[in-house]
Simulated assay, not measured.
Amino acid sequence: MNEVRALLGREELLMLQRKSTWKAAWMLLVNWCLIAATFALVIARPGIATVALAMLVLAGRQLGLGILMHECAHRSLTPSRPLNDWIGQWLCAAPVFADLLIYRSYHMTHHVKTGTQDDPDLPNYRGYPVTPASLARKLLRDVLGLTGLKAAATLAVLYAHAEPEKLRFGYAYKKQSAESAAMDGDSPGTCKVRHLLWNARRMLLIHALAFVLLWACGHAIAYLLWPATWLTTYMVVSRIRNAAEHGALPGTVSQDIWSNTRTVLAAWWERLLFAPNFVNFHIEHHLVPTVPSYNLRRMHRLLRDKGVLQQAHVAGGYVQVIRSLVSKR
């Protein structure tokens, strides 16, 4: 924080950290309106083309809800903490098969341990760059749903744990063996169905309500779009977003924020897919995690105008990032 105070004045920092209920409401409204419009399009004009388009748009919106959950994990979305947690839990986390409290514990570790072996996000970004063939295989597994099925199995193990917030690598979507679960404070015998049902209760309720709503409208089958997207196209955009934040950088496995974190200047279509809700301003977020995402663009401009970002890794778009994720060998 001392470094940040040297970069930004006290008034600038206070201004950037100011939370707005209206800005939060607008971001939430935009995300959910796009979701509703996408379902309406498929219902009105069912077909291969509309379903394919819907699964791209919904992938970006599932990531968008995940980013809003991330904001709520930092308690930076709204000025009211109870409202922040309610929104994060019910309107953001539960729809994307996550739990705010479990995620908060996981994500705070990432901020403290970025670039170290103790960073729970490290498996998502340390392997880059990779060969073109390797990246192609990864993306093919994502599109075919193989990555998604593995992630779903990992979440099932996570939520079947008596104390899932203690599983350090839970939301890294890495399969937990009995041994690794025990290392994180569990034993195989404590992973039970009753824990699974209890920890997933909010998700089960939200998804049941969504199914009933679509069933009441006469289009129950449309519900399948949501889990199908999560299992496939969402895994693609999530992979690229994860790798873009810390992957293929000189200091990826260091704790130097200027060499292990990347900001991406995203085009409008990239913001729809890979960078919803200003998540692309990642250096700025790591510098001051308490700045709401709707203020990160302003923070970026302030730092840029002060010449601070000359030492930072700022990519010109996600196409450029994807190129950097592929090695020349």
Rank of each mutant, 00 (worst) to 15 (best):
G115A: 12
Q117M: 14
L122R: 15
P123Y: 05
V130Y: 11
P132F: 10
R137Q: 07
K138I: 15
R141Q: 08
G145N: 10
L146Y: 10
T147K: 13
T147P: 07
G148R: 12
K150E: 15
A152N: 06
A153Q: 13
L158W: 01
Y159N: 12
P164N: 09
L167N: 11
L167R: 09
R168I: 12
G170V: 12
G170Y: 11
Y171Q: 12
A172M: 05
K174D: 06
K174I: 11
K174A: 06
K175V: 14
Q176W: 05
A178E: 04
E179R: 14
G185S: 08
G185N: 06
D186P: 00
P188N: 06
G189Y: 06
G189C: 04
T190E: 07
V193C: 07
H195P: 02
H195D: 05
L197H: 11
L197S: 11
W198V: 07
A200M: 13
R202C: 08
L204R: 06
L204N: 03
L205A: 13
L205F: 08
I206W: 08
A210W: 03
F211E: 02
V212F: 07
L214M: 04
A216H: 00
C217I: 03
G218M: 02
A220D: 03
L224R: 00
L224G: 02
P227L: 03
P227Q: 04
P227G: 03
A228H: 02
A228N: 03
T229Q: 04
T229D: 01
W230I: 04
T232W: 04
T233F: 14
T233N: 14
T233Y: 09
